[in-house]
Design a protein around this nucleic acid. Structure first.
Lengths: 237, 237
DNA sequence: CGTTAATTTGATCGAAATCAATCAGTGTGG
DNA sequence: CCACACTGATTGATTTCGATCAAATTAACG
């Protein structure tokens, strides 16, 4: 395990000492199903997943995407059944960690626990941004904003290179994330492509004119608090 | 301070021993302004507030409403400037608690800390439901669903009586919460009223036919996890 | 290479936005 | 006590963005 940090030696060894079980899920598998009481927290170590809630009539809404390095369900302390599901978007490897293990990190002094806290904080910031994006932005703004967010996060997670990143997300999934129809998602993507703002190839997205996208949706580059808080957990395998 | 709980005597006295400062905000005042590093966590003890994010062009989105008993910013451990603001919707009294105090609760053994954890969990559930509501529901469903949520929460917070509750929220605010125009909010409210589902009077809402509303938006009565987790903090003044 | 899933495109429809007034309540200062 | 201003609610007319319906085209894959 490796990490960026203002962590000291003790903190690092506390994290390195975490016991975990590695689990692999194939594309389309459910990592967590609504109603489960998963019992464990987990950290995505490779692949992408999506947290979503399905309504009874077939509509469904993606809450957010999970990329390598993202932590799930720190609320294990008090949880009582997930109110949403988690779906693997491609082959996903996760580190599953028992409640007890997480608790032990928090009980120790030092900043190791803070690294987890910070992950939870960032996740909440992403949820808040999702609310604003879907609530008060036009379709074109939503798409541009989400692409910029995912690009940023893909870079941080070690995937992606420069202005390109692999995005294993179908247009129907994008639609469920952005509260739009997949037909309209397609039109917006094509329009952005025709305008030279992006290009697409076999699941890879390239932001050809990033500044244009940023201007289009007034993307605030700092909203993930990434610069201010270098306490992110990172993993190399 | 009083609370529902599976807390023991030690837990209760730990909570009772919390030092706090009481602060009063008038309707329209900002309790927290974006960019602030508030330093303290706080608990609403009376009145309603709204957490929101404003875009530069005047659009704004309410993230959620805060009612008495709701806790704000347990992430004080690692925070670095709020990414959103909090607005008082009527006269609001809050208990402001220093970081150090909150930390001391968590460091003690026992379930007192879990009570705070649970508040954070519930808040996240509300944010998630907000995403689904605004992303995948029609205007009528959104209004019905939000009214049901607020009614439920008003009852729990000790306000409201039976099917009625005081809702100090203008139609423009509802619009900013639900991602709609205030004109359309007005039409939907009138329609629900004409249909006999609700009635309104000087800021009070009565759910005349609650079952009808529930059916209309398929409201899941349990989504706040209230029954499963009676660890909510409560306050009487 | 056939079969299914994902993308693309066109045509039409509709829910909600926008534009534009009016009306009701509430101060508030003369 | 009244004229005025201001905020919030209401209603109507028109427009628009995105949904829906339908079909074709391409990509993925056993």
């Amino acid at each position: 395990m490796n990490y960026y940090a203002d962590l000291n030696e003790d903190d690092r060894s506390a994290l390195d000492g975490l016991k975990y079980r590695t689990e692999v899920y194939e594309s389309g598998e459910e990592i967590v199903t609504r109603g489960d009481d998963p019992g464990d927290a987990f950290i995505v170590s490779s692949g992408w997943a999506a947290r979503y809630i399905a309504l009874e009539d077939g509509r469904s809404q993606i809450l957010n995407f999970m990329l390598p390095g993202d932590v799930y369900d720190l609320q294990v302390f008090v949880s009582s059944g997930a109110d949403h599901s988690v779906l693997a978007l491609n082959q996903v490897t996760v580190m599953e960690i028992k409640r007890r293990e997480i608790l032990s990190i928090f009980e120790k002094k030092g900043r190791a626990g803070a690294a987890f806290w910070w992950c939870a904080l960032q996740e909440e910031a992403i949820l808040r941004e999702q609310i604003v994006r879907n609530g008060r932005r036009s379709a074109r703004e939503r798409v541009a904003h989400l692409l910029l967010e995912l690009h940023r996060r893909a870079l941080i997670s070690g995937e992606g290179a420069g202005d390109s990143f692999h995005m294993p997300v179908s247009q129907a999934m994008l639609a469920d994330a952005l509260g739009l129809s997949f037909v309209h998602i397609n039109r917006v993507l094509r329009e952005l492509e025709k305008a030279g703002a992006i290009s697409r190839k076999k699941g890879w997205i390239t932001l050809e004119r990033r500044e244009h996208l940023v201007e289009l949706c007034d993307f605030r580059d700092d909203y993930l608090h990434l610069d201010a808080n270098p306490r992110r957990l990172g993993f190399n395998f």
